[in-house]
Amino acid sequence: MRELAMGRRAMERAVAAVAWAGTLLVVAAFGALLGELLVRGAGELSWRYLVEAPRDAGRSGGVGGIVVATGVLVALALAGAVPLALLAALFLDEAGAAQAGRARRRLAAALRRVLDVVGSVPSIVFGLFGNALFCRAFGWGESLLAGGATLACMMVPLLTIAFDEALQRAPAAERAAAAACAFSRAATLRHVVLPHAWPLLLAGAVLAVARALAETAALLFTSGYVDRMPTSLLDSARSLSVHVWDLALNVAGGEARACSAALLLLLLVVAIEAAARGALAWLRRRAGR
């Protein structure tokens, strides 16, 4: 009996030790990642780096046009995806209402499933799709417009799912009260649903921005990789993520610069996510008071 207890204790110790070791390994790996980027990349980051055009295939100069192109791509994607996703989420929300018919509820369930599937499609497949549809069939060529549209297609399912969840935040009792008062749908939305939902709507959109910023594979075949300042939406231009890829793969001696660009990209993504989380927490605290 005692031996058994001893054995068990030893086993517990062993499990704990292995778990700690594994965790340390993970922390070390990611520490190495962040350390590498910080040590090799932070030195280059400066005001000039942000605004100057890249020179010598990106070995010197900055990321001026690239930052602009990245911003334009994300803005295009948001502009295309947010209205569509918001309306689609409204549809899902309505279908969940008590007075909605059975057929409609089924349709909504099917739509949710479809969105889940589309949301899990690899981004490079969206790249193929965008290349075939926007670049070739629509004749936009490799351009910011084609890249933005491809990103928008990618974001629609993610945003709709996020918005759908946000809209569900409105308590059923309040909705029922609104229905009892014969509120119009628009009025219910305006006075009952949105006050509960908007922080999460915003957070969903911001997270989608972070996702779009990080995207590379979908842009490779749709917005091309010209590293210059774009002057129109039909110009080809590279995003920051594509710049990292090109420096890492195609530029001998481009590592240091790739580190800077990667660090910048990471900082942007993390800052955006942190801002979304922080804002959400703040709103929740305020609401709680």
Binding site: G65, V67, V68, G71, P230
Partner: peptide, 9 residues
Amino acid sequence: ALQKAARLL
């Protein structure tokens, strides 16, 4: 960059 960025955005 800044002017063009604003216009494009």
